[in-house]
Amino acid sequence: MLTIENLHVAVDGRSILSGFDLDVGPGEVHAIMGPNGSGKSTLSYVLAGRDGYDVTAGRVQLDGQDLLAMAPEERAAAGLFLAFQYPVEIPGVANATFLRQSLNAVRKARGLDELDAMQFLKSARARMKLLGMTDEMLKRSVNTGFSGGEKKRNEVLQMTLLEPRLAILDETDSGLDVDALRIVADGVNGLRAPDRSFVVITHYQRLLDYIVPDRVHILARGRIVRSGGEDLAREVERTGYADYLAPAA
């Protein structure tokens, strides 16, 4: 489903990713762990198409399409979803307006009918209930004045509405208490399907108790330095990242 080959990325002339490879098959959940500043968010932004990240080499394909040649909104239409580490506030824009416009833009691009206000509300409310969100969250401005936990739930709500092919979750666990963590994990697990894949970026092993990954990768020094099963996450939790920071002897 997602294939990343020899990806090199620089920001302001500084190399962040160098020779990053990853292969995520349909229905798989891959976890990417790594120390702060190792380039995890950079990876997610490059995949989503944010400006300011120079791809100096490499290829990325989603379902055989050249992802890097597409505009961010085209990537979204193709099924790529990014749950932001820091969800963005949009003052004055009601969350409901934003979610519906987003959903309809994606549905339109996928050749589906757009939802009217009633259909949208029905769909959103059903999902919000599962995420423990109240109706009030639809009236408030997008992420504006939301607590950390509310923002992350709002990201997961969008993910469940947009039903992506590939969802990237960038530290969705950070800032969540255990209850919220469980709700968010339930949201993700409820979406798991044979034709849907996840890249779960996290700094801590904790989340992976709830979202059990097929593969775990350690990102350090611009590339994946080690891959393994779910045990690798527990190992890293014990030993820390220090070993991975120094160049291999």
């Binding site: 979204a76 932001f84 949009i90 004055g92 987003s102 833009a105 691009a109 969008q158």
Partner: peptide, 20 residues
């Protein structure tokens, strides 16, 4: 970028943000 990641084309995103 947040809007565009959610599938909203740039021009619509500008209109949305400005309306806000």
């Amino acid at each position: 970028f947040y809007c565009r990641q959610r599938g909203i084309a740039e021009e619509e995103a500008v209109a949305l943000i400005v309306n806000g």
